[in-house]
Every structure is written in C-alpha cells, then in structure tokens.
Design a protein around this nucleic acid. Sequence first.
RNA 1: GCUCCCAUCGUCUAGCGGUCUAGGACGUCGCCCUCUCACGGCGAAAACAGGGGUUCGAGUCCCCUUGGGAGCGCCA
Length: 475
Amino acid sequence: MSDEVVTRFAPSPTGFLHIGGARTALFNWLFARHAGGRMLLRIEDTDRERSTDAAIAAILDGLSWLGLQWDGDVIYQFQRAERHREVVYSLLEKGHAYHCYATPQELEEMRELARKEGRPPRYDGRWRDRPASEAPSDVKPVVRLKAPRDGETVLDDKVQGRVTWANKDLDDLVLLRSDGTPTYMLAVVVDDHDMGVTQIIRGDDHLTNAARQMQIYQALGWQVPSMAHIPLIHGADGAKLSKRHGALGVDAYRGMGYLPEALRNYLVRLGWSQGDKEFFSTEEMIAAFDLANVGRSPARFDFAKLENMNGHYLRHADDAYLVETLTATLPHLPNKPVLPLEFTPERKAQLLAAMPGLKERAKTLVELLDGAQFLFAKRPLMLDAKAQALLDDKAREHIGALLPLFTACAEWKAEPLEAIVRGYVAETGVKLGQVAQPLRAALTGRATSPGIFDVLEVLGREEGLGRLLDQASGA
RNA sequence: GCUCCCAUCGUCUAGCGGUCUAGGACGUCGCCCUCUCACGGCGAAAACAGGGGUUCGAGUCCCCUUGGGAGCGCCA
C-alpha cells in the first residue's frame, strides 16, 4: 500500500480545460494506470475571485469525455485552508518561518532596485531575523518561509533531468497572506503530501516553482515526491498556446467532431514516443507509457495530423458505435441547427447501412454528418451547383432511359442495380462515369458521395426511383 | 534584466559514439486504382541551427553563440 503509485491532476477552475491541461491529465492518468496506481483530482480553487462553478463543471465534463476517469472524490483545495494554516503555524514554531511586515511599496522598491543592479527581483529578507518587538502595530504581517540562503536546491526531474538552483537566487516566499489565507505554493505542498502523491506530473511552467516547493518540503521534514515537468504545447506558429491564441477547451474539439480516442492518441504522441509507432489503443498506451520517453522540447499543435488520426479512427470504428457516437455528439456539433435531423429508427437503420461508405470519406464527425445529409434530404432535392452542372440534357436522358430498367429490378440491391447500369453502358457505348455522375447528382444533390450503387440500395426502391424521376427527362 | 529549460525534414518524432549516403508519420507533389470524393498502393522533394572542443570516430558527450520557451506576485 505504501508504495502504491499516486498521481494527481490539479487544474485551477478559472476557465475551461484546455488542450495542454488535457495532455497533462492524460499523462498523469497513463502513468497511474500503467503502475496500477491511482490518479487523484484536485481543484485548486483558492483564488476565490476567479474560480467558478461553471469552470469546474467544464473540467469534469472534459475529463469524462476524454475518458480520463479520476479515482476517489474530487478534492477542493479551498476546503483545506484550515489544515494549510496549521502547517504554517508548526513551521513558525520550529523557526522555519517568520512574520514579515514589509509593505507592498517596500516590496516594489526592492524589486526595482534589484532589477537596476542586475539581480533577480527578490525580497531581501529584512524581517528574517528581526525580533517581534520591532513589529509595527499597524501592518498585518504575512508569513514567509525561512529558506536556506547558501547551497543549492537540486531536483532530479524525471523528464528534465537534474536541475540545479543556487539558494541565494531564491527568496523567502510567502506562505500565509496578511489576511490569513494560504498561498498556492504552500497549499500545493501540503495537499500533495496529505494526498499521498508519489509522482507529480505537470507542465514545464511549474519547473521553477518546484525549487521553492522543495524548500517547503525540506522545512517540513517531508519527503519530496518524484517530479516530472513536461514541456508545454505551442500553437502552429510556435508561439505559446494561450486562451487568446488557439488554446481551445476540449469541448471545442468535441464540437469539431473529433473522437476522444483519437484526441488521446494524438496528445500522447505530442512529446512522447515509442520508436516509430503512431497508433496506440488505450491498452497499448497504458502498457507502453513511461516518463523516460517524454521529450524535453515543446511541441506544436498540428490540426492536420489530428485530423488524419481522427480519420483513421473513424475508418476503423465499428459502424454501430459510430451511429451512437454521432447521435450522442449531435448537440455539440455546429451544424446541428441547420440540419433538423430526424433520428427515427428507420433513419438510424439507413445511417448504419450507409456507414461503411460514409466513414471512409470523413475525417471528423462533422464531415460524417455532412456526408450523410442525402439520407435526410426531402424530395425534390436541392441540387448544389456542381450537381446542377452535371444534370444537363444528356444526363437527364440517361436517367430517363434507366428508370424503367430500375423499376423492373426484382431485388433492390447494389449488385443487381450495378448490373443494370453496366448493361446499359455496354449497350449504349457511353462511359460509366457519364451515367454514374448524373445518377449521383440526382440521388444525393451533390457531385460526391459514397459509391452510387450503395447509395441507391440504402435509399430504397421508392425513394431512389422518386429522386430519379424528379430529374429524368425523355422517359 | 535575472534564473531555469529546450534545439533532427514545414509539423510530430526515431536516433541513447561506429550499423546515419539520418528512419517513420502527417502535410506537400507526382503516378496507379477508380462511377465522384475518399480509402488504398507506389514514388519524390524535405532536417541533424552555427562555431569550437573531447574522441580513432559525434546527430549522439562538453563549452560558447544564436534562436525558442517558461518563471521571477500577499495569482494559480
């Protein structure tokens, strides 16, 4: 039990779960699953101003959609404030922390001076060793950590390798604000310790925080968990991915029609690899994942590759699964209002029957839905420009000539229907394309679609003949 | 400014001193397949940031430069 692996994902609920956070969660999840351990979820909601319930809901929803199930109850950091305070008091008692009465103005002056002198902007420790008797009565103090001033703090990071900081470059960070609330730096350490976290996996942006947190661990006499700082994801242009700059919530990816399993696969390959292998089932991913093969350089997010992967997952997905997934995803898709779908049992059956041809041609669920539009179209069909161009006089004559042959077809199946068309083509000497394209235009209203004989079969005799009749001439 | 991190095709990456005239995938461009579009098949162009070392030998180790990134709050 004591050597069970415990990871945690600790987002702050100030916005949606963005793609970088999703990958951090994925890595934590994979690491825990791989080791047969647990992944805990902690909501860092100590910033009361910016934390919202809507954001918490979005994060939980995003994780669930991605299939990243956390273990145990969700932990809310704000609820643990009392415990955080206790820890600070114990530090105060042991002399590892002290009250600091420096004003914001003083702090600002210190930073300015330091900057001017080419030093890192730091608190100068002026209250470190001053007796309590000198404390001004009109200033509410903060509590600062009495950090070591000599030597160095060394982190053996599982991804970044050995990272060293000179302690003189680190200042005495605030543990408790003047209003008595704990700071993030302190809360993280206490929570990770209390939650029994053995492996911290988080974004690169926390690397310098790691040094300060290690100092808190040391002051507390606690064992520092193993740490791994994974590189951030950048936008396509190489710039940092921010909410203003292409960082979308995972719900946006759902809305764009990506499958969660495809997004997971894409995300895991962003910064982690195992030789040349590109596609990993969830089981394979869990079995293969390790921190040693996580790269140290940031990766750019490439929609083209995500789309390709999604297409792969679509093509290889079970037809019934896709019908269900499409149905379930419909409310999240952007073109849903444009297309008042009637998912009657009959329509679903048609969709299922057409799925092999449909999924082959789609890279996202949005495209899949678009490709399936002809199933839901009502007679007489609206023809798009290309379809209209296809249906010239000659084309309509072909359709007219084919109509009685189709009508006489005993079994409304792709194979006999194809035989009829091939026979007609052989007899008249026209190219198959000259007949197939007009049929496609008449049956789907478009210039592209799944194989035309499959379309004919899926539509059924009545609807198929009707649509052809609408466009035929000379019959 | 200071601290820390990073650096192989356009992008994601393989490479953990010799088997690298650098491999795979996406994307791009040809060709094939073909009722359209896709899929699929075949092929092509495309990279070790630069400079010093170390070594018999460097994409692989060290240093510098350059270029990216992150952090430097009584935010998280």
